[in-house]
Amino acid sequence: MRQKRHLLLELGVILLAVIVSVPLYLVLINAFKPHPEIVKHPLSFPRFEVGFDNMVNAFEKMDIVKAYGTTFAIGAVAMFIAVGLGALAAYAVSRLKHPFFSSMYWFYTACILIPIQSALIPLVLLLRDLHLQNSIFGISFIYGAMLAPFCIFMYSGFMRSIPYELEESAYLDGCSTFRTFFQIILPLILPVTASLIIVQFISVWNDLQLPLVLLNSVDHPTVSISLYKFFASRNMSDLSLLFGGIMLTLLPIMILFISFQRYFVKGLSTGAVKG
């Protein structure tokens, strides 16, 4: 009886996974079909007659290489700020027992909720005043500021569960706070770091609003902007090209995600959720 129920549940979950994956399935199969076939048989498995043509065509038309480079650069800088500098701050607010630090923790938590979109126009002006308009650094700083609060929140949760004895022994040995952080704490938080980097990098990769408003799409095209421009000029008349383009935007992050998948749960389970 136990076995049967188990099996049923497993089937139910698999069914749900199938339903959830329908959109991805659609993108995958249609990226390999010519346009007329997509219109007539959207669900059918492709016969691969066009092979990778769709994606190659999209590749040529989208100027995707520059977009990959730009987006990657923005993501990298943003990660350094949000994850790297965030970890430092999280250490301070979660380990030090002064009320100042605990109130800063609440400040950072509140920042998670600030909708940056409401301040787009002041942001534009700010970047201009700092001579950072239409630059990769400018937009990366904004992403860093947006994503850091959540990183600090997650890191704090995790760091609280690290036993104090580790640090105490380090101090007794004469280590400064800096050394303690880099040599003792850092190795312990690498799994969480991996998870945070994946999650935040994906959100930077996919974001459309900020690059649209803050960057010139010729100087610094991001992947999402390239796709957006691509979409708008094709309409519905050439679905094969469209799906090819979608595949190009999805592929890098899918690869990133699948290869780092195991760190995900590991990173989160090693105590990030222990408050």
Binding site: G69, A73, A76, V77, F80, I136, F137
Partner: peptide, 16 residues
Amino acid sequence: ALSMGLLSACGGNDSS
């Protein structure tokens, strides 16, 4: 990756 990103970010900034 971060260093590559920073380098190309610097390069990108110069061109803009």
